[in-house]
């Protein structure tokens, strides 16, 4: 599916650019987007190193195991595929809490650590997402945030009378979208589970 989405974006933009006479802009967008992608990745190195360092301490001290054990029942509801008391449950918890608190640049390293943990549990085809990964990314793309900091900051900078009155509508919206996303992904997983190779079935 992602192949077609990617193809669609690129083909449609070139076709439309010819009609709109924006082919020059499209050409420049290619160059600037490449640069932007690299600068985002490079910009991540520092904060990524920092949080991964701290996470290593948390893992080595057994703190992550402790968190995993406490929250295991809750995480197990959403991710029945993950074995109980697996430290990846703690990584998932940390990622979701960091996102909820609006700590975007801490959430990414936690999330990537969680993805590495899930990849270890992923059976045979390591290029195909596991069921747990689909659920995990559905939660992440829904972007549940208790306080929509960016939106409030922009409203406040424009002298809105009451910038915080968007908080409750935003929470209602984001939670409903999350629930719909989870129901949808769980349904899809049930109908189309990840195919298991013949060798694994025999085992």
């Amino acid at each position: 599916m992602i192949n077609y989405i990617w193809l669609f974006f690129i083909l449609s933009s070139v076709v439309i650019a010819f009609f709109n006479n924006t082919i020059q802009d499209v050409f420049h967008a290619i160059l600037s987007s490449c640069e932007q992608a690299v600068s985002i990745s490079i910009g991540l190195i520092g904060i990524m190193a920092f949080w991964l360092g701290l996470m290593k301490i948390a893992h080595a001290s057994g703190l992550m195991n402790l968190i995993a054990r406490i929250l295991s029942p809750l995480i197990h509801l959403l991710f029945p595929e993950i074995p109980k008391n697996n430290p990846v449950q703690a990584d998932i918890t940390m990622n979701i809490s960091a996102n909820a608190l609006g700590l975007g640049n801490a959430a990414t390293p936690f999330g990537i650590k969680a993805m590495e943990g899930l990849q270890k549990l992923n059976t045979h085809d390591k290029k195909t997402a596991s069921d747990a990964m689909c659920t995990f990314l559905t939660i992440n793309t829904a972007g549940v945030q208790l306080i929509p900091v960016t939106a409030i900051a922009i409203l406040a900078s424009l002298n809105a009378d009451n910038p915080t009155d968007i908080i409750i509508p935003t929470i209602i919206t984001t939670l409903s979208a999350l629930i719909i996303g989870i129901i949808f992904v769980k349904g899809l997983i049930k109908i189309f589970p990840k195919k298991v190779s013949r060798e694994e079935k025999i085992q």
């Binding site: 390591k126 990964m133 689909c134 189309f192």
Partner: peptide, 13 residues
Amino acid sequence: VGITKFRHAVSAG
């Protein structure tokens, strides 16, 4: 983690 087949994550997102 080098995954290129996103499966249901795209449609659910």
